[in-house]
Design a protein around this nucleic acid. Structure first.
Lengths: 121, 121
DNA sequence: GAAACTGGTTTCCTTTATGAAATCAAGTGG
DNA sequence: CCACTTGATTTCATAAAGGAAACCAGTTTC
């Protein structure tokens, strides 16, 4: 039984890499991380406020991304008994555990900007 | 001059949200974060080892993602003067500053798995 | 020379993702 | 009744992403 592929020159797949993959499946898409960042910053937010506040997002996308986040219990949706029905979204307790990820991403964005600035000077 | 859109009910766009967007533009795509995780874990790695080690990735994608990371000075590429030419990839100093992001993502994957486990029990 | 290995690139094709605009349902104010 | 609000969903269309397989170039080994 000759294997076609040569043996890999590196140790086997690590837990950490699996965990990275798991996380990124839930957070994939152009808007999810931005939405979570929003909710971390603002707490409870209504649909229309996010729609107007997150630059460039379309209603369909916002709706779809929020649904997916809700299914994964990262975001909670509450229908309020107001005159024109409003809906509030907020992070669940589990969703809030993403703050470490979001903060790291945000902080790196700043680091990267400094890096680019140093280059051009 | 009546604005068509009502005023947003939340304060204006924050720096943090811009930084998140900036970061995610560089790390978008199905494989980039996994690749960076790999390089953090293994250091210098050859092209073929990554191709065999990262499950499911095609040569085209690996090549393309590495090029993009190289353009953003996150990954460095070194052609080695060996018999069959080999090429080594590794994180640049700037690329290594992503370790906080990658670690947070990895750690959350573990947190999430625990969360799912608690639910089913 | 044939075959294999390295590190790619190219072609062709399919699947996802995203977006703009229209529509809808329920409710309010005039 | 008409217009407008909120929170969506539906339709239609396009753009982007991703993948399988073939191909290429340089070098080595049989």
């Amino acid at each position: 039984m000759n294997a076609k592929k040569p043996a890999p020159q590196v140790p086997d797949c690590k837990e950490q890499l699996i965990a990275i993959k798991d996380t990124m499946i839930l957070l994939s898409g152009k808007w999810k991380i931005q939405i979570i960042g929003w909710l971390l910053l603002y707490g409870k937010v209504r649909f229309m406020d996010m729609l107007r506040g997150i630059e460039g997002i379309a209603a369909k996308m916002l709706s779809k991304e929020l649904q997916e986040l809700e299914q994964n219990e990262i975001v909670a949706r509450t229908v309020m008994p107001t005159k024109p029905t409003t809906v509030e979204y907020e992070l669940t307790e589990h969703g809030k555990t993403l703050s470490g990820v979001i903060d790291a991403i945000s902080a790196w964005g700043v680091t990267h900007r400094k890096f680019l600035f140093k280059k051009e000077s």
